[in-house]
Design a binder for these strands. Structure first.
Length: 641
RNA sequence: GCCAAUGUAGCUCAACGGUAGAGCACCGGUUUUGUAAACCGGCGGUUGAGGGUUCGAUUCCCUCCGUUGGCUCCA
């Protein structure tokens, strides 16, 4: 007899060699029907796995995240079979699950087009309806290699596979078989044939290596049922509405033009948001002891030879020649900052020196890389370079993290993750210096009690770094802040300071950015707020809406007072009814709408309506002004008055 | 850059091998309006650019440019 301990603590005895499916049936016919796979002693297995001895068993259904993932993986196999049945020459490469679905990489010379999705889906429905079992077959690695000797992709997969036992799964009437670790659902019919959809096809290099063959990656999504699928498709539609490119157009914040691909044009309203961000940024940096500098956007090419950018970064740079002198448009601000440092001698008493720069940089990006404001060819970095002694490193890093946390909190970003990248193979500087520097970074993160992930060998060639990442609404991860230690530049540029013992020493240089690229940050902010900027950042804070022309004079007076109070305000004197004016103000995402008619004019008050609310409140204008000003000063995320 | 898709009025989208159409926006008029869109009229397009096929191309084909979704990269 085998003893199975279940999640509720109970122990069920089953005949030795009985399968998980048998166990599920013993627990109840309902469970048997929805069971997809199981965990035995925390190991994922198929329902057909026999039970022996004392084990803990968790039976997984599509309600479990893992159950759904297994379903998706099985769905990927079914799609692979469908594709192979349509294009027999297709070679399967690799088909994992991803968030919300799965993909399968396929080597096939005929392009798979969106028009083909329907017939692939139809074939998949047939396979699901045929309800054939997934059957696992195991063999040794050598046997598997021999079996797949003619298939470069599967042969490669087997070589990369972990463990000594290699498994294959078979399903379908034609005996479709694929190398796979498993587990899988027990029958193809367990998938709801209305619960999946093929989403897109894209190119993907084998092993993600641009020198390898471009494969076709077919993406699909799969859910418990039709309703869940529809919910997912609906969420995608909603996410599209939040896309900063869409909102940017709607709200007239910025635009792009063919004349300058990857160069953003900020419109008046976009500039209001931009200036709101940098006013705050300057205030914070002043408080944290930074000085601000500004360096030219192009500098003599020779400087970039000296800095090492010519050797390491030339492909991403723009150049221009005037009077036979070649200038490089700066892709980074550091060389300019170094020239500023070197413009006079420095004493140890001045350190740490924190020099900030909102530097406009240009980086040539391959055309396929560009994406709205978040991936551009020209952007403004909120850069700073800190020059300090080795002993000061950790304290400075902690200071940067403090500053960063204060800024992120003001924008309401709670969810970000930290990555520490360590010494890469190709690097400069001794192992000792790297260790000291890496420990300083680690020490600072630990001192701040932050969780972090280590990216071994992912540092820059000149030093280790810490990166701060956040996810946008479409779940793409973006790097915002970065703190990088640099051992290369101070030496290349012969930086020095006079130490207490009157010797000349080389300072340590820390590069850091908090928001990263202001353009990108603005894009992320737009999505984060869905265009509903908090009052302190809103490109239009208040709009006055007179009921009719008869109240235009009073509305004008209200407008004047709001302007005098320093608020960004406008007046809608169009010949529309107030309902239309309100609808338009909502579309423009204006935080406060002031409706004024004869009643308000008589009493000298305003009727306030807040964005995202249908409540209204009548209030004296002076009171409203002081409340709004308070909210701006507090950077309040709440509009309620 | 690579793979695929795509480009029609300021915006969102129709149509089609035979002279391009709607809604919103804009302009003019009527209305003087009370909390998410009053009514009437008008303006607006060498259909991304350039070639080719054709009696005829916005439609089919090619090249280029932009954009979108991915892949590598990174702020």
């Amino acid at each position: 007899m085998a003893k199975a301990k279940l999640p509720d603590g109970s122990i069920l005895e089953v005949a030795d060699g009985a399968t998980v499916a048998d166990l599920a049936a013993q627990i109840g016919p309902g469970l048997a029907r929805v069971a997809l796979a199981a965990k035995i002693n925390d190991q994922l297995v198929d329902l057909s796995t026999p039970l022996t001895g004392d084990v803990t068993v968790v039976i997984l259904t599509s309600r479990d995240d893992i159950g759904l993932e297994i379903t998706r993986h099985s769905c990927a196999h079914i799609m692979a079979e469908a594709i192979c049945s349509i294009w027999p020459e297709a070679k399967l490469v690799y088909g994992p699950t991803v968030r919300d679905g799965f993909y399968y990489d396929i080597d096939l010379d005929t392009p798979i087009r969106p028009e083909d999705f329907k017939r692939i889906e139809q074939k998949m429905v047939e396979i699901i309806k045929a309800d054939t079992p997934f059957e696992r077959a195991e063999m040794s690695r050598d046997e598997a290699l021999q079996k797949m000797a003619g298939d470069v992709y599967k042969f490669d997969n087997i070589q990369n596979a972990q463990g000594d036992v290699i498994s294959f799964y078979k399903h379908g009437g034609d005996g479709f078989e694929d190398l796979c670790r498993g587990p899988h659902i027990s029958r193809t019919g367990s998938i709801d044939y209305k619960g999946f959809k093929i989403m897109s096809v894209a190119g993907a290099y084998w092993h993600g290596d641009a020198s390898q063959k471009m494969l076709q990656r077919v993406y699909g999504t799969c859910w418990q049922n039709k309703k869940e699928l529809k919910g997912y498709l609906h969420r995608l539609e909603e996410a599209k509405k939040r896309d900063h490119r869409v909102i940017g157009k709607q709200m007239d914040l910025f635009s792009f033009h063919e004349e300058g691909p990857g160069f953003a044009f900020l419109h008046p309203k976009g500039m209001k948001v931009w200036n709101g961000i940098i006013d705050f940024w300057r205030d914070v940096h002043r408080r944290y002891g930074y000085e601000e500098i500004k360096t030219p956007i192009m500098l003599n090419e020779s400087l970039w030879h000296k800095s090492g950018h010519w050797d390491n970064y030339k492909e991403n740079m723009y150049f221009t020649t005037v009077d036979e002198i070649t200038y490089a448009v700066k892709p980074m601000n550091c060389p300019g900052g170094l020239l500023v440092y070197n413009s006079r001698k420095h004493s140890y008493r001045e350190l740490p020196m924190r020099m900030a720069e909102l530097g406009l940089v240009h980086r040539y990006e391959p055309s396929g890389m560009m994406h709205g404001l978040v991936r551009v060819r020209q952007f403004t970095q909120d850069d700073a370079h800190i020059f300090c002694t080795p002993e000061q490193i950790q304290g400075e890093i902690v200071g940067v993290i403090d500053l960063l946390q204060e800024m992120y909190a003001a924008f309401g970003f709670e969810d970000y993750h930290v990555e520490l990248s360590t010494q890469p193979e190709k690097h400069i500087g001794s192992d000792e210096v790297w260790e000291t520097a890496t420990n300083a970074l680690k020490g600072a993160i630990e001192q701040k009690q932050m969780d972090y992930q280590i990216n071994e060998g992912d540092g820059a060639f000149y030093g280790p770094k810490i990166d701060f990442h956040i996810s946008d609404y479409l779940n793409r991860s973006w790097q915002l802040g970065t703190i990088q230690l640099d051992f290369s530049m101070p030496e290349r540029f012969g930086l020095s300071y006079t130490a207490a013992d009157n010797t000349e020493k080389t300072p340590v240089m820390i590069h850091r950015a908090i928001l990263g690229s202001l353009e990108r940050f603005m894009g992320i902010l737009i999505e984060h707020y869905a265009g509903n900027f908090p009052i302190w950042l809103a490109p239009e804070q208040v709009r006055v809406l007179p009921i009719s022309e008869k109240t235009n004079d009073y509305a004008g007076a209200v407008l004047g007072q709001l302007k005098d109070a320093g608020l960004i305000v406008s007046l809608d004197t169009s010949d529309d009814k107030v309902g239309a004016k309100i609808a338009r103000a909502h579309a423009d995402k204006v935080p406060y709408m002031l409706v004024v008619g004869p009643k308000e004019a008589e009493a000298g008050v305003v009727n306030v309506r807040m964005r995202q609310s249908t409540d209204t409140k009548t209030i004296a204008l002076d009171d409203l002004i002081s409340m709004i000003r308070q909210k701006i000063a507090d950077k309040s995320l709440d509009l309620m008055i």
